[in-house]
Design a protein around this nucleic acid. Structure first.
Lengths: 354, 354
DNA sequence: TTGAAAGCGGTACCAG
DNA sequence: CTGGTACCGCTTTCAA
């Protein structure tokens, strides 16, 4: 089923059918009617590949993320999708699962599709890949990776600052031994995040930190927490790389009969919806995912002649959110101390601290 | 950058470059080497649109789901993606957000892309759309919608049976007034699920049920639970259409100081990972999402000449999973009764009941 | 083993 | 306002 068949049935040329399809206003309405009728009768669906080949463009933008399973990424994706649709673009997504090999093939795939723009929301990216992208001349926005460059915009969250707020808060509550739950990606050579944690802790001499990493999932957070608790380090607070792993950590603590926050405090990062709905509600750091999504779209899809991609860096400062999963360290300063009477569950009220 | 430029640089014809790209074994290795070199030097990326236009095929399958935000859908998606990659296919996904208008455009988009196969994991679908798909000659698998038909396979879960298990269990625990938390989609004309609940309840004369529906999100579940609790119906158990809304309901109950399961029992559906990690862990019904994903791929992507799509129905029977969110109705038979002493939290142990 | 050329299904420019 | 037609970039006979 193609243009020609439709044209034949409507007794017009393929050019005219094409005009109708792209609703060019020049077509006489009676002709248009005949064409529309033919299209419907034949249940004709234009071949999008042919269309973008002929047109040279694709009305599609690509979004690559490390882990769409994590609502943090998905929230950004949803915003992008919604914005893109508003402007008449489609979105194709790709998941790398934190595997660099997947990242490479996803990027190649996007270039092969000749996307009109590409957002890479991934934690790491080889320089050659960035180079490859730059050569492709596709407008690109990176979230949290790489450095500013021609045709590439960088959006980054001041992760370092967020972690400092968390660490300072825990310190002020009397915590001295912190556990850090990461995911495998933080183990990479240029792990910005791990470094941010170490640095934040290093500022305060009385603090000690121990790290464990596993998958970026509920189960991964649980396993990492388990390792942290298996040693005699006995952290009084567990700082998690994000909310998903934090919920996993909460589970492990609950299983062990360790109360949060009475025995051990827990913090997340991202402030996904779940951080509010889990128990206890997580103290976390808010990253404005919708804003990130909007910015990405603004960079990728020029609005009526606006410049689009900015060859520079946009930094977002995160807000600290206190909820119920953190509290003062217990009197003895020890970690889990079984047999204590339950403290009253604090009112589930959250507040934003700048 | 195109085939011709590569061909010129390698001093061969475009046909030969094409052969190298599709690693046809006929190319002399010295020639192949020249071509590969040229490809790399030019950082050439084949235009996928041109490729699938010329080839007539697309090595891509489409997956449409109602709500990828819900891990239930995403788990199926991931399995499909993984299986597809193993067989050399790409996957493009589309989210309908339960909006029939989005469903229509997503389907048109997939047809326009000439996908090699399409999985529709959505709760409702207009007959005209099914017709449109059938005409397109694309192999299709429906999950939970429609009836068997030429070129279309149907996979469905015996939702009815699952709900019966839930209702029977709650009844055996002494519950008589049930609340049902649905999502907006169950309000449609042919709401299989809503009907299943009503029927399951109707079998047992002593049972009463009240329904509320909101979005298929944590917040939606919370709101629906709130409506249920706002009346004087005072349900002693809340049956939720799925785990996500159930976690939302748990939150609302917690906010109100209503204990689960002592004051009110809660059940979910799907058995997503979160149902185990939330507090209290949810009694739910397990749907084998990986199995569903594998079946979908088997139907869509013929393995070495195998028949592929089956024009019939595959029914999956769900398993009941008891965890900590359900318990015997409190002595008075009333719903929430404040001021009672805390019961000991039962060991977080789950068991499978067929 | 390689090259020439005919499509694949549209788009868009140029005439009429 | 409509038709003819030269591409878009790649695959695939058919010959050489």
């Amino acid at each position: 089923m193609n243009l020609e068949q439709v044209a034949r049935r409507a007794r017009v040329s393929t050019a005219t059918v094409s005009r109708v399809l792209n609703n060019a206003s020049v077509v006489k309405s009676s002709t248009r009617a005949r064409v529309v009728k033919a299209i419907e009768e034949l249940k004709y669906h234009p071949n999008l590949h042919a269309r973008s080949l002929a047109g040279g463009k694709s009305r599609t933008i690509g979004v690559i993320a490390s882990n769409m399973e994590n609502p943090f990424f998905f929230d950004i994706y949803k915003t992008i999708e919604s914005d893109a649709h508003d402007r008449g673009y489609e979105v194709v997504m790709a998941n790398t699962d934190y595997r660099s090999e997947q990242l490479v093939s996803s990027i190649r795939l996007m270039i092969g599709r000749r996307v009109a723009g590409l957002a890479a929301i991934v934690s790491e990216m080889a320089p050659e890949l960035i180079e490859e992208l730059a050569e492709s001349r596709i407008p690109v926005v990176f979230y949290d990776v790489g450095t500013p460059r021609r045709n590439i915009t960088n959006i980054r969250v001041n992760y370092r600052r967020g972690i400092e707020k968390v660490v300072d808060y825990l310190h002020s509550l009397g915590h001295r031994r912190l556990g850090f739950v990461g995911h495998h990606a933080i183990l990479g050579p240029i792990n910005e995040r791990m470094k941010a944690v170490m640095d934040a802790v290093a500022r305060i001499p009385s603090l000690e930190v121990r790290t464990a990493a596993d998958a970026d999932t509920l189960e991964g957070g649980r396993q990492a927490a388990r390792s942290l608790l298996a040693t005699d380090f006995a952290p009084t607070a567990i700082v998690c790389v994000n909310d998903v792993t934090a919920v996993g950590a909460l589970y492990e603590l609950r299983e062990r009969g360790i109360r949060v926050p009475q025995d051990v405090s827990v913090t997340g990062f991202d402030n996904i919806k779940l951080s509010e709905f889990c128990y206890p509600a997580l103290t976390t750091v808010h990253i404005p995912r919708e804003r990130v999504g909007h910015i990405i779209c603004d960079c990728l899809l020029p609005r009526s002649g606006k410049p689009a991609v900015i060859d520079s860096e946009i930094v977002i400062d995160p807000e600290f959110v206190v909820r119920d999963s953190t509290g003062p360290v217990s009197p003895s300063g020890a970690g889990h101390r079984p047999g204590q009477p339950d403290a009253v569950h604090p009112a589930a009220q959250s507040q934003l601290l700048s």
